[in-house]
Simulated assay, not measured.
Amino acid sequence: MKINEFEEFFESANFDIEEPQTDHRDKFARKLEKSRKSGKAGSNSRKIWSGLLSIAAILALVLLLSNNFNQANQSDLASISPEMKQTQQFYSGLIEKELIALNAEATPETQMIIKDALQQLKKLENRYKRMENDLLESGNDKRVIHAMIQNFQQRIDLLSEVLEQIENIKSLNNQNYESNTI
Rank of each mutant, 00 (worst) to 15 (best):
Q88R: 04
K97W: 10
E137K: 14
E8F: 12
E7V: 15
E18M: 13
A106L: 15
F9M: 14
E164I: 06
W49K: 09
L135M: 07
A56V: 04
V144C: 03
M1T: 15
E96M: 11
A29N: 12
S43M: 12
Q21D: 10
I58L: 07
A29T: 14
A29S: 13
K122I: 09
F6K: 14
S92E: 00
S35K: 08
A106Q: 15
E7T: 14
L52S: 04
A101C: 10
G139F: 03
I58M: 06
L121P: 01
F28I: 14
A104H: 11
K115C: 06
S12I: 13
L94W: 04
V62N: 00
K142M: 04
K40W: 10
I145H: 01
M1C: 13
Q71V: 07
G39C: 06
I80T: 03
N70T: 08
V144D: 01
N176T: 12
N4R: 13
A101S: 15
S75I: 01
P82G: 01
L163N: 01
E83C: 03
L64A: 11
Q88C: 08
D16T: 13
R36M: 13
I55A: 07
K97D: 10
Q71S: 03
A57Q: 04
L99D: 05
N133A: 08
Q150G: 11
H24W: 13
E167V: 10
Y177I: 14
L65I: 08
N174Y: 07
N73Y: 01
R143G: 09
E161T: 11
F15P: 00
S54I: 09
E83A: 12
K97C: 08
A41N: 12
R130N: 12
F15E: 01
